[in-house]
Amino acid sequence: MDVEKQATLAVKSAEDIVRIRREVRSWAVESKFSLVDQTKIVTAASEIARNTLDYGGGGQLALEKVRQGERRGLRLTFSDQGPGIPDIQRALTDGYTSGSGLGLGLSGSKRLCNEFYLESKPGVGTTVTLIRWK
């Protein structure tokens, strides 16, 4: 996979989530995503950014415009040095939450992307990667 453009954004505060939404939106528009696809990736970004902030204690987002063969898309990698997720399988189940949310953050975001990867080590941190192809 080739990376055509990349940027790093902080996920430290609630304002950062708004900033991330705007940035992801403008990249999705630039990548000529349809309105529905733009909305899906921006919403997924918003969900994961909030997770990174609330459960991971903040972290960062690596935003990349990628290309694989003829396919173009956006890859979002959120990483934090938080407590990690002990049971990934359970965390990806609809309705499961360790906080006060509706428990749709992870599983719901997964449905909004084409590819979704979750890596987590208790005590070390969590990395969530989202890809949405055009």
Partner: peptide
């Protein structure tokens, strides 16, 4: 609610 927003919300499970 905009169509794209509605589609996304449903996909999200809400």
């Amino acid at each position: 609610m905009q169509p794209a927003v509605a589609i996304t919300l449903v996909e999200l499970g809400l």
